[in-house]
Design a protein around this nucleic acid. Structure first.
Lengths: 201, 201
DNA sequence: CCAAATTCTTATCTTAAGTTAACGTTTTGA
DNA sequence: TCAAAACGTTAACTTAAGATAAGAATTTGG
């Protein structure tokens, strides 16, 4: 995928929720960067400030923590999803997590300074605020659902829900990542899967 | 507390993260409403679309779900915090939760239509987008932390962290609400408390 | 002011998840 | 291509949490 295709895909994605004129797009483009993130390479690392918000235009990434030497997966992102260690990006504090490519991936990124400049721009500032308001609101809803599932559902219920709705995650992601995404161990997920198989068999 | 005091407190709070000129404030004020929410009264109910974002200027509220006849508490909000069932507010779908006053409370609210009108206003639209972008980002960070705690910490670790940082919640809130905020049962929290007492004794 | 409801703790029992380890299979990369 | 690493399942054991119930202390509302 070339740079132009990546940028166009970024524009297309933005336009699914905020229309952009060609004039506005021409203002925004110079602030964007296209970058390749090879499998296993980090977009964010603990101890470093996350300086970008990226849109995955190709590939997939995994967000995870390391605790007691163990990797604990928070979530995954696929094509047309924004990634960032938001807390770090927004507060300018060092991140406490990794964001790492699961496959060779292509990202369109906007760094912190450029973001602030675009917010301050007379022509596109209002629209950029809107875009990133909507992005934040979108992920706010995702997290709201996630927290709800943790307090109202058992691990088995969470897995069943994922079976219904999260097809992509389950097909593209190793099971032990899915397990700690669900808040459980791989062993435990394996047991849940067996239980479900027996019921449906 | 009278209406004027409530509105001024709203303005003061907004100005902690976005400055407002008097002119801008005069544009915004007519869209705001001040409302009293008596203890145990609902700000949001399942099945109804949440039509407001509110700022708690006095009192406190509790966000909870009802599952199998049981109330499961998601979180609490105190003075100078925004409340809404964001998913419902943003998507215009019926809410699936309650938001209920824990004490007699006063809220400054902005309803959905007024929010959209303010976003579209030439004078304050840009700033309103910014304000609600920052609000969404703030709560996004809160939820990010919350999810992180669920996947990386045990209930006991979560409670210890709450002891360190969440003084207000622990002083003003019945323990069984805190328990399901932590994702555990009241009985389980009681056991954790005993364990901690023994260690520190 | 007092009865009813709520809250918290404790105990018992049950159930589910964590831990560790072993084993076969698949994937990876040198 | 082939050895090493990663992955998923299973088993045995340990640990912690859920469910239920009872009882004491506190709070609430009429």
């Amino acid at each position: 995928m070339d740079t132009l295709t990546a940028l166009n895909q970024f524009r297309e994605h933005i336009q699914t929720f905020v229309p952009l004129t060609d004039t506005e797009w021409q203002v925004i483009v110079p602030y964007l960067e296209v970058s390749v993130l090879k499998k296993k390479k980090n977009f964010v690392e603990p101890g470093k400030v996350c300086n970008q918000i990226g849109l995955v235009v190709k590939g997939s990434v995994r967000f995870f923590h390391v605790k007691d030497g163990e990797e604990i997966t928070g979530y995954f992102c696929f094509e047309n999803e924004f990634i960032s260690s938001y807390k770090s990006f927004l507060t300018r504090q060092p991140a406490i997590n990794y964001i790492q490519a699961l496959e060779d991936s292509i990202l369109v990124t906007l760094n912190y300074n450029n973001t602030q400049q675009l917010y301050a721009d007379d022509l596109v500032g209002h629209k950029m605020e809107r875009i990133y308001r909507l992005v934040a609101e979108h992920y706010l809803i995702c997290y709201e659902d996630r927290v709800t599932s943790f307090i109202t559902q058992s691990p088995e219920e969470r897995y069943n829900k994922l079976l219904e709705t999260g097809g992509e995650v389950l097909q593209r992601i190793p099971q032990h990542y899915v397990a700690n995404f669900l808040g459980i161990t791989p062993v435990s997920l394996s047991r849940i899967r067996r239980r479900i198989m027996k019921i449906s068999a």
